[in-house]
Computed example of a mutant assay.
Amino acid sequence: MSDPKLVYSSHVFCCTNLRPEGHRRGSCAARGSEKLRNYMKARAKELGLEPNVRINSAGCLERCELGPALVIYPEGVWYTYQTQEDIDEILQTHVVEGDRVERLMLAPDQTEPRPTTTASSPA
């Protein structure tokens, strides 16, 4: 049997987990993930990505110390993001163009955050 047709061309899960203040791993929500997820949903709608793209909240994705974190399926690519500009770049480069935003990608075995960079800074 073959797999069914995809319901969404891209399905984005944004961690909005909130741990108690001072937790050793932190939490995506404490780093602004809910506000940024809301922005991503609105921006995807503005770009006309619906109904082929779905932006969802997720509980803990177990990467909060690297977050805010999100994962995009069906590719299974993980990102960290901090700003609306990061969200814009992920939507345009990954979702629309099918490429990757390497400076924001999280490696499967990554346990420490990358140094902060901006879109115009060399990675």
Rank of each mutant, 00 (worst) to 15 (best):
M1S: 11
M1Q: 08
S2Y: 10
P4R: 11
L6G: 09
L6V: 09
V7F: 08
Y8H: 12
Y8W: 12
S9I: 08
S10M: 13
F13T: 02
C14S: 13
C15S: 02
T16A: 00
N17E: 09
L18T: 01
R19D: 01
R19H: 02
P20E: 15
E21T: 11
G22W: 00
H23G: 04
G26W: 06
S27N: 13
S27D: 12
C28A: 06
C28W: 06
A29W: 08
A30R: 15
R31I: 03
R31Q: 15
S33H: 04
S33T: 06
S33M: 04
K35P: 06
K35D: 11
L36F: 10
N38C: 09
N38M: 11
M40S: 09
M40E: 08
M40P: 05
M40A: 13
K41S: 10
K41P: 00
K41E: 12
A42L: 14
A42T: 14
R43T: 02
R43L: 06
A44D: 03
L47H: 02
L47S: 05
G48Q: 12
G48H: 12
P51G: 08
N52L: 08
V53N: 03
V53E: 03
R54F: 11
R54Y: 11
R54C: 12
N56K: 08
N56S: 14
S57W: 08
A58S: 15
G59Q: 07
C60R: 11
C60N: 10
C60Y: 07
E62P: 07
E62I: 15
R63P: 07
C64V: 05
C64L: 06
G67L: 02
P68E: 00
P68K: 00
P68C: 00
P68A: 00
A69M: 03
V71N: 04
V71M: 04
I72M: 04
V77G: 06
V77K: 14
W78M: 08
W78H: 05
T80I: 01
T80M: 01
T83V: 04
Q84S: 08
Q84E: 15
D86A: 02
I87H: 08
E89N: 11
I90C: 05
I90A: 04
L91E: 01
L91T: 01
L91H: 00
Q92V: 10
Q92P: 01
Q92N: 13
Q92A: 11
T93Y: 03
T93F: 02
V95K: 08
V95W: 03
E97H: 03
E97S: 04
G98L: 09
D99N: 15
R100V: 14
R100T: 13
V101R: 11
V101K: 10
V101G: 09
R103V: 04
R103K: 07
R103C: 05
L104R: 08
M105C: 12
A107E: 15
P108K: 14
P108D: 15
T111F: 00
P113R: 14
R114L: 14
P115I: 15
T117I: 15
T117N: 13
T117C: 14
T117M: 15
S120W: 10
S120A: 13
S120C: 06
S120G: 07
S120K: 12
P122Q: 00
A123I: 06
